[in-house]
Design a protein around this nucleic acid. Structure first.
Length: 600
RNA sequence: GCGCCCUUAGCUCAGUUGGAUAGAGCAACAGCCUUCUAAGCUGUGGGUCGUUGGUUCGAAUCCAACAGGGCGCGCCA
């Protein structure tokens, strides 16, 4: 059993605390923390224990801290313990404790950092969920990456994770798409109509004019001949073709979207169709259940304040009592034509997710859907029981694409840089993924096309991958030496993990080991907070520690990794390098970024 | 008009859920480096954490008000 270093010392601290201040309420003991120190001069670990219990113990924090330090001094692996500041206790660890971290990493491999915090809890992460009306737009990209990385992160933390895509294939958008595809079909069979003549027949005009529907029309023509049209290639009544064109076009669009997701390295476990949920009557049943709880009624809403929609008129409608759950106003479930609002269908969808049994639901949405969060949480609270399941909505802010410091116009008409595919083709999947995770999801972000491909310190993608490549380069060098008979000893990971690592004693080496010791902690806290960007930041810090050590080797030959005259020392250093590479891989895996072996 | 999100160094952003003297990178400044481990290194300066109150041992973090930016506000998803 190899507990994280922080967990181990936390229990030591709690034990010591019990000796210094007996009979503490468990609620207070639970809040005791052991954290990394911010300043290396404070040692390796710090605890806030004395500050927390001072009030209950009716003693000064500093005095308790002094007593605690006294007890902790004698804990194995503690080099020194000191009371500091307003009542912290700082622990400096013996180098052997940190050296053991490397061995622990090597034994666990990429599973180092795996946690059990989520064991027994199932999470459904729903993300992307772009309308099936065309290829993926760069606007979808951030949510796709954030959701995917979050799902990976939760898995690593022990949660049972389902990655889900919600297909919005029931709304008016899809009908508009079908009209547009139908036009391409008519063209394919040689209709005499001009585009304008046809557009005049379409409610709302042709909304999807993109070329990507041309092959869809051709395929429809191939499969159905002229059977979807009237005499002479003229448009047939809607009931002749709509259903067919709609389903087949949506299927084609989803295939396109899946290919885009594939290019981004995103894989969902479940694709759920809005139309299917509606057709199966799940939406109606969910609303019936709400009605049974007295949460549905017919009523008239106050007009919205400020600018009124031009055609606004008071009318009675079917409303959900979201105000019972903290919303400002009750929310409508039916449009004036009697069909469901998006919200109503989303209630059905979430009821379906709840029925499938997740303990936690996570929705990843664009920031423009922010206004729906409260009502959706209200609906989930109403459908669930005793606050279960919990719904967390992650809002992803808009990404501004920038080149040469100038925003890149993403105009559909100009056809410049609208699709996700364009972006991936230009900078690569890894750069896209990593960069999307270098900001908190709800913070605005600039995506600089020049910077993300730059091979320099200020490009985090490069910086982290370069650290891994450097590790691999050292390991390759070692293998070559061994091959040439100039390096003795077993270089396998198993052998390295069994070595005495006391040779790793410089500040830079210990700092790197200390950073690796934090990895399990970072995984847990990021998973609990639903913040995958923390992984990206941790990797930058880990890479920085490794590069710093590497650079020390320029001046101080003793800090280099390969020493032809000392095989034992070399193997010790290789253990550190291998461990570093392993943690970087483990982190990049969470982000869905390839750990490259060399930079080209 | 109302609601939600945001405001931290010149710029782009972190800040481990309330902890110590608020941190990185870039830019600026000062040295070093012309290969010893390619795509530099080391150091320095830089802050009223939007403003004002409040909560407490302790606030960038929680609460209230105000200022500025973004998003949204029946029948778009």
């Amino acid at each position: 059993m190899s507990d994280s270093l922080f967990v181990r010392y936390l229990s030591h601290v709690r034990e010591a605390l019990g000796q210094v201040v007996p009979d503490l309420p468990p609620a207070i003991v639970a809040r005791v923390e052991v954290t990394p120190t911010r300043d290396p001069s404070h040692g390796d670990l710090a605890t806030n224990a004395a500050l927390l219990v001072a009030k209950v113990a009716r003693r000064k924090p500093a005095d308790i801290a002094a007593d605690l330090a006294c007890v902790l001094e004698s804990v194995p692996g503690v080099a020194s313990a000191q009371a500091a500041g307003p009542g912290f206790v700082n622990l400096k660890l013996a180098p052997s404790v940190l050296q053991e971290v490397a061995a622990q990493v090597l034994r666990a491999g990429e599973s180092y950092g795996d946690s059990q915090v989520g064991a027994g809890t199932t999470v459904n992460v729903e993300y992307v969920s772009a309308n099936p009306t065309g290829p993926m737009h760069v606007g979808h990209c951030r949510g796709a990456v954030v959701g995917d990385a979050l799902a990976n992160l939760l898995s690593k933390a022990g949660y049972g994770v389902t990655k889900e895509y919600y297909i919005n294939d029931a709304g008016a958008q899809v009908t508009a798409l079908a009209w547009a595809a139908y036009w391409r079909y008519l063209q394919a069979i040689g209709t005499p109509l001009t585009q304008d003549e046809f557009a005049a027949l379409v409610p709302g005009g042709i909304q999807y004019g993109g070329d990507y529907l041309v092959p869809v029309g051709e395929e429809l023509a191939q499969r159905h001949g002229t059977s979807l049209a009237a005499e002479g290639g003229r448009p047939a009544p809607v009931d002749v073709w709509m259903k067919t064109v709609r389903t087949e076009t949506v299927a084609r669009m989803m295939a396109m979207i899946r290919a885009d997701l594939e290019a981004l390295g995103v894989h969902h476990d479940v694709f759920t169709s809005e139309a299917k949920i509606l057709a199966d009557g799940e939406t109606d049943r969910a609303i019936d259940r709400l009605a049974a709880k007295g949460l549905i009624y017919e009523g008239v809403l106050e007009p919205p304040k400020g600018k009124l929609p031009e055609d606004w008129e008071a009318r009675p409608q079917t409303l959900f009592r979201s105000t019972e759950f903290g919303d400002d106003v009750d929310r409508p479930l039916r449009k004036s034509d009697g069909s469901n609002t998006y919200f109503a269908n989303d209630i059905g969808y979430h009821a379906d997710k709840i029925a499938r049994g997740a303990d936690v639901l996570i929705d990843v949405w664009g920031a423009d859907h922010g206004g729906y969060v409260t009502r959706m949480k209200a609906a989930v609270a109403a459908l669930g029981q005793d606050g279960k399941p919990e719904l967390d909505v992650l809002l992803c802010q808009i990404v501004r694409i920038v080149r040469d410091g100038q925003p890149v116009r993403m105009s559909k008409r100009a056809g410049t840089f609208v699709t996700l595919r364009d972006l991936i083709d230009e900078v690569g999947r890894d750069a896209v993924r990593f960069t999307m995770l270098t900001r908190k999801a709800d913070a605005q972000m600039e995506f600089d096309l020049d910077q993300v491909v730059a091979q320099s310190r200020d490009n985090p993608v490069f910086y982290v991958q370069y650290a891994h490549a450097r590790c691999c380069s050292v390991l390759r060098g070692a293998a070559e030496l061994a091959q040439a008979g100039r390096l003795a000893g077993d270089l396998s990971v198993e052998a390295l993990s069994a070595l005495d690592l006391s040779g790793l004693s410089s500040d830079a080496e210990l700092a790197l080991l200390g950073r690796m010791a934090q990895w399990p902690r970072v995984v847990e806290s990021a998973a609990i907070a639903h913040e995958p960007h923390r992984i990206a930041f941790y990797l930058q810090e880990l890479a920085a520690d490794f590069h710093a050590l590497w650079n020390r080797g320029r001046d101080d030959a003793a800090l280099r990794f390969l020493h032809e005259d000392d095989a034992e020392l070399t193997r010790t250093k290789l253990a550190l390098v291998e461990a570093t590479a392993s943690v970087i891989r483990s982190g990049l895996r969470v982000l869905g970024v390839e750990p490259v072996k060399e930079m080209r």
